[in-house]
Design a protein around this nucleic acid. Structure first.
Length: 383
RNA sequence: GGGUAGGUUGAGCAGGUGGUGAGCUCCGCUGACUGUAGAUCAGCCGUCUUUCGACUGUGGGGGUUCGAUUCCCUCCCUGCCCA
């Protein structure tokens, strides 16, 4: 009946589990990372690049695609999969994040959000029903409920207000999704909010869990709170979720170390712009930690970005070459670095799955923590 | 040879018609980035100093002056025009 099915088994590491998500466009092994393709493209990468990197599932965005090129147009052209030539699973974000990131151009009321388009300033209206309509037109495998996230450091009453609105919108999202008959071909995930307040998070988790979504997402994290606060919040959510069998998706995370924090607290799915964004800005992730390819020290370095990596970049090109491409602002720099970071991130998730299976999760975490805790590109030692 | 416009911190410029020139853009160096308004943004970018701050610097030399980037003399260099 549902569009997706999910099976997972517990491991002996915290709340961590190994699972498999079946979608209309294929399976997803969990824990899994989903590269972000906001505007019907994971910036600078082709579907072939994504496949080569090991990508199973990607993201698209309701707000951006509805403004340009327009979800109706995408629907006429055969849906988002065909439009962008990605035949694997796609999850679409609801536009809720843009309520946050474009907050200075929005006005929120209980019914929905009014935007000034970031493209031309024209007034735009997003409601739970409208978000479901757009996501149906895009034809994603997984749609997200329309939510409101806020800065978790705001006064508790503001965080509660956004949380309660999110709950209201979750029910309307669900009703609209069911009412339109898209539930057979598209799953819908609900989103937990509540900032970093344990009571609010617990309350939000209970409310969202009770609504009958196909999956449960944790929203409103990695937006400025500390690592400790994020971990503590995930602990609260994990406890409140108990043995709920549905897939758990931590939105907007993350960095290599964040994956370990979240996986052992039961998270199955991740998405984040970080690997692709930092790649475009010259930072690559490797088994030596972070490297900033714009640093002068790489200009004469003949080594690949990462000696262990199997990606096209590492198989063919040197750090010196990438350092040159970034200085020259050559477009290939963005593709080669993005391809590597996506490969690195997906490989890391595969290593995490392997470590969950064979019990080496803790030692893998230590290895990665050592690589990423100390910035490699620190001040030059004069000793 | 004559005329003319110039010579400012790596490059390109702004400014300054006797009262303290460290301002901009590149380049360069470094950092940041977490459900993408981001191939973006921020800091630094003469010397010394952690900072505060101090010092030096307007082609070279000389002159006038309390004081010169500014006025005078001279030399060097560059662009353009004419021979």
């Amino acid at each position: 009946m549902g569009a997706i099915s999910f099976t997972a088994r517990a491991t002996r590491i915290g709340s961590a589990r190994l699972g498999r998500l079946e979608t209309p466009h294929g399976p997803v092994d969990t824990p899994q990372f989903m590269p972000v393709g906001t505007q019907a493209t994971v910036k600078s990468l082709t579907p072939g690049d994504l496949r080569a990197a090991g990508t199973q599932m990607i993201l698209g965005n309701t707000y951006h695609l509805s403004l340009r090129p327009g979800h109706e147009r995408i629907a006429r052209l055969g849906g988002l999969h065909r439009f962008m030539a990605w035949d694997g699973p796609i999850l679409t974000d609801s536009g809720g994040f843009q309520v946050f990131s474009l907050a200075h151009m929005t006005r929120v009321d209980d019914d929905g959000v009014t935007f000034a388009s970031h493209l031309d300033g024209s007034p735009q209206r997003l409601t739970p029903e409208r978000s479901m309509e757009i996501q149906a037109a895009l034809g994603s495998d997984v749609a997200m409920a329309f939510d409101q996230l806020v800065d978790p450091t705001l006064p508790a009453e503001k965080v509660r207000e956004a949380m309660e609105r999110t709950h209201l919108w979750a029910e309307r999202s669900l009703a609209a999704h069911r009412g339109s008959g898209q539930a057979g071909s598209q799953a819908l995930f609900g989103i937990i909010q509540g900032g970093i307040d344990p009571e609010l998070r617990r309350e939000s988790t209970t409310r969202i869990v009770g609504l009958g979504f196909d999956g449960i997402a944790v929203g409103g994290l990695s937006v400025g709170e500390s690592k400790a606060e994020m971990a503590a919040t995930l602990d609260v959510v994990a406890e409140a979720l108990g043995d709920d069998p549905r897939p758990r998706y931590l939105m907007g995370v993350g960095s290599p170390l964040d994956f370990f924090t979240a996986v052992e607290r039961g998270i199955d799915l991740f998405d984040c712009v970080l690997p692709t964004r930092v790649a475009r800005n010259g930072q690559v992730w490797t088994d030596e930690g972070r490297l900033n390819l714009r640093n002068a020290r790489f200009l004469d370095d003949p080594a690949p970005l990462d000696a262990r990596c199997h990606c096209e970049t590492c198989q063919n090109h040197s750090r010196a070459y990438l350092a040159h491409l970034f200085r020259a602002e050559e477009l290939l720099a963005y593709r080669l670095s993005s391809l590597h970071n996506v490969t690195y991130t997906l490989d890391l998730m595969a290593r995490i799955r392997g470590a969950l299976a064979d019990g080496s999760f803790a030692s893998l975490r230590e290895v990665v923590a050592a690589q990423f805790s100390t910035p490699v590109a620190g001040p030059i030692s004069h000793s």
